[in-house]
Simulated scan of single mutants.
Amino acid sequence: MQLPAISATAVPADAYLLDVREDDEWAAGHAPGAVHLPMMQVPARLEEIPRDAEVVVVCRVGGRSSQVVSYLLNNGFTNVVNLDGGMQDWAASGREVVAGDGQPGRVI
């Protein structure tokens, strides 16, 4: 099955960006306004993921996030898409990356 996906440049400013990377990756750098929910915690925290807005799921390169998108689709979500290329493409396309302390971040 082809998963729904979006490019970093096409993500709307008001999208709900769900970052499923680990704590150290998140702290090093993430998209402003993103919500951190590590991949392994998704099943226990499904109720925190909105069903009434487009949810863009992101990891470092798109592998883990595609697994999360597949999981969410299999659990009744219809509003989730994978960020093609993950945070690496996000940063490469010139989108802002911030660290945990608000300083410029980096993708690790």
Score class of each variant (00 low, 15 high):
Asn74Met: 06
Arg51Ser: 03
Ala92Cys: 03
Ala27Glu: 12
Met40Asn: 06
Phe77Arg: 15
Ile49Phe: 01
Ala13Asn: 07
Pro43Glu: 01
Val80Glu: 01
Val35Thr: 07
Gly76Thr: 11
Val68Phe: 03
Met39Ser: 10
Ala99Gly: 06
Pro104Glu: 13
Ala10Gln: 14
Ala44Asn: 10
Val107Leu: 05
Ala31Leu: 15
Ala91Cys: 00
Leu83Ile: 05
Gln2Ile: 09
Gly63Trp: 01
Leu73Lys: 07
Pro4Glu: 13
Ser70Gln: 10
Leu18Pro: 00
Val58Thr: 13
Val61Gln: 11
Pro32Glu: 06
Ala44Gln: 05
Gln2Val: 14
Pro38His: 03
Ala15Trp: 02
Asp24Ser: 08
Gly85Ile: 02
Leu72Asp: 12
Pro43Ile: 14
Val11Ala: 15
Val57Gly: 02
Met1Leu: 08
Val55Gln: 09
His30Lys: 13
Arg45Val: 03
Ala31His: 11
Leu46Glu: 08
Gly76Met: 10
Glu25Cys: 04
Asp84Leu: 04
Asn75Ile: 03
Val80Trp: 03
Gln67Cys: 13
Glu47Val: 11
Gly76Ser: 06
Asp23Trp: 06
Ala5Lys: 12
Val97Gly: 05
Val68Cys: 11
Glu22Tyr: 13
Ala28Met: 01
Val11Thr: 08
Asn74Phe: 05
Ala31Thr: 12
Leu3Asp: 05
Gly76Phe: 01
Gly29Val: 11
Gly76His: 15
Val81Gly: 08
Met1Cys: 07
